[in-house]
Amino acid sequence: MELTRRQTVVGGAAIAMLGLPRGAFAVNYPMVGTPDEFTQGAEVGVGNITLMTPEIAENGNNVPIQVAAPGAVEIRIFATENPEPAVASFAFGALAGSQAASTRVRLAKSQDVVAIAKLADGSFIGTSNNVKVTIGGCGG
């Protein structure tokens, strides 16, 4: 990709705005990232992964979700239409009773919630659910 001057200027300004306050605290956050950063371009297949979400969420501030993928080493959740699509990543250790977890998330508007699991052999499987949101959950 060729960068135009405008893109460079805008991008640089954005980095400066975002980067400075972060740098001031010098905290290195672990990041969930984007689906592409997770899969590194590998194909996401279908498999034994279940994502449970409500069909309609009245309050986007607090949407219960449940994800399970037997044999997964890590599962990541993305909300495609949120200002930051990353939601959470679950990495399972030796004593995990099952490769499953539940939590509550924010959804800005009606959208697809995506779950991608990385299996022990390094392959990826994914699934997605559409959730209709009555009141968005990201302020605004």
């Binding site: 672990p30 990041m31 969930v32 501030n61 607090n62 949407v63 909300a79 949120n82 930051e84 699509p85 990353a86 939601v87 959470a88 990543s89 679950f90 990495a91 399972f92 250790g93 004593l95 995990a96 009773g97 977890a101 939590t103 509550r104 998330v105 924010r106 959804l107 959950g137 990201c138």
Partner: peptide
Amino acid sequence: IIDVVLAPSVS
């Protein structure tokens, strides 16, 4: 057991 990374989208 579990290691979770949270983004601002968690409630």
